[in-house]
Amino acid sequence: MGVEPDKIVVQIDEDLAEIAPGYLENRRNDLKHLPLALAEGDFYNLRILGHRMKGSGAGYGFDGISEIGRAIEEAAKQENRQGVEQGIADLAAYLDRLEVIYA
């Protein structure tokens, strides 16, 4: 069985099979909150959201989420609007392309 070439395949511990979907759902919710915070110029909350993604992503097995979170946190610290926009776009693309395999 092949994998679509544009997919990001992540294999994570089956012990996390019950909680990983909820974690990803929370990140999809972040995709609603991040643009709102950016529209309000709320860089403090953007920084917190990025910080949390950075701290939690790799723990669940999603290293890409930690990397994106780190970029959002750094951009928010510098009140870099374009940087935050790029981070939001990267998160949307990552979640869209993600395929999780539990093993």
């Binding site: 012990d15 996390l16 019950e18 909680i19 909820g22 974690y23 929370n26 949390r52 701290g55 939690s56 723990g59 669940y60």
Partner: peptide, 15 residues
């Protein structure tokens, strides 16, 4: 303060 971390660590330790 991050509920995702509480869930992850709680799950890991309980297991």
């Amino acid at each position: 303060d991050d509920p995702d971390i509480r869930t992850l660590v709680g799950r890991l330790l309980e297991k």
